[in-house]
Design a protein around this nucleic acid. Sequence first.
DNA 1: CTAGGGTTAG
Length: 619
Amino acid sequence: MINLQRKVLESELVSILQGCTTLNQIKRVHAFIYRNNLNQSSYVITKLLRVLTTLRHVPIHTYPLLLFSQVHNPNPFLWTALIRAYAHKGDIFEAFRLYGSMRMKCTGPVSFTFSALFSACGAARDARLGAQVHAQTILIGGFASDLYVNNTMIDMYVKCGLLPCARKVFDEMPERDVVSWTSLIVAYAKIGDMGSAGELFDELPVKDMVAWSAMVNGYAQNAMPKKALEFFELLRNEGVEIDEVTLVGVISACAQLGASKYANWIRDIAGSSRFRSENNVLVGSALIDMYSKCGNVEEAYNVFKGMKERNVFSYSSMIVGFAIHGSANEAMKLFYEMLKTEIKPNHVTFVGVLTACSHAGMVDQGQQIFATMEKCYGVAPTADHYACMADLLGRAGHLEKAHRLIETMPMKPNGAVWGALLGASHIHGNPDVAETASKHLFELEPDNIGNYLLLSKTYASAGRWDDVSRVRKLMKEKRLKKNPGYSWFEAKNGIIHEFFAGDVTHPEITEIKKELDDLMERLKTIGYLPNLCSVSYDISDNEKRRILMTHSEKLALAFGLLRSDAGSTIKIMKNLRICEDCHIVMCGASKVTGRKIVVRDNMRFHHFLHGACSCGNFW
DNA sequence: CTAGGGTTAG
């Protein structure tokens, strides 16, 4: 009778405990437990410990440990709760010390114990210890066939980067569930092997929302946005429920596609779901990124403003959005607004802020932020931040300063750092510095064709044709093929029209050519002269003029002028960097037509209006 | 108790 009452009391307590969210609430329940002589109940104390350790600011070695040590004969679950708490804090040493004590007292383990230990090993990337625990699961009867133990073991091996071991566990498991499959699918997706991920997914007998989302996100993360959308459609046809995580993958895929058609499509789906950007930071932040990558930074800001809750992702995405659109002042303003909130800037925030400064030529401000980011905001500069600084200084013409910064930086310069210097050397026509930067880049990124092209263009601008052909020869030896330049324009109906350089295959090419010729005539009246330096071949000036007129972004512009509503913004996307001559033409076109033109090249967005570009002719 | 998650520079 007494035992029954006790059981009822225990279970009531546990349900009260699960609703506790503050330390004071927990302490009150604890006092009650103590008064009712329940402080020896492993069951109740285990629950108490679990709730307590979800509070981040409570150190385990104080209150939780005290609770534990007051129980004379802790059962395996109570031991495990404490082990798990240390494991979650990343204290692998303490977790294993406790496991040792537990074994010495001849208690347990239970499957949860192994889960906690595997999670500790995974967090610490300690595969050696993980393998020892693996061995224990075999030695201590029964656990090697436990589904849950095996699932956590797979996860541990995956976190340690030992996919073959994880696969072996998976292949030898007597019983698998959708969790086991999904763990492995994600592991393959993370290393970029979507082929194996897809094979596993096909074999998976019962697919749930998480497994589907893993595929959608896997394709999105591996730059296969079309595939991601395809899987999302399949998932919806299957009648599978979607949630915020699924949505984020699709939104990121739409961001990569950069087309308004997809942006509007997923906006409506998200808007009619339970996960609207106003109430959901995850979806909201993803939409901010998507809109800015689709060229619509105004809409990105609308989403930002409409969000009830914001976090570091929302702010960083918005700051980066402003930065790539050349709205440096807005980016800075938002950064200072952010500093007034509780939200702390992180390394990405600073990349955004420094990029904004760099694109706007705000050298002093950028240098000041760079100098104080660690001291004032606790974010230590990484090589990426040094790349921003090399870009900031170099772009502004301080090539030597940029070079000196690189040579004195505390870590090994990466490709972005030398790439920034190379880009700056190209802008300022300094083949000698370009040569130095390239030497490093050819070692760091031997297959990145952009570096070879930029170097050869810098030589060409300086008239060093021998060096140009030397670089060309190098590219030939490495069998590097130049990507064909192309641009695209999204028509009102969402159909995308692609134009390659020198393209004559578009059905309306005659009209397009005529439109372009007309535009050129009008530009000449305001003083346009073809920028022959934009062609880095040693050919006649006439031939250069002809080639300039075949650039894909000019064809897309002419098509856009023909096929868009008067007064609307013309949006052009390009896979390579926009050339100087096309940039001049875009400026002029915005002036003579009175249209707003937005060009997204592979680096950033250019907003042309009234004859000027948001980048300040500075890119 | 175990599986899916967003922002990054040249």
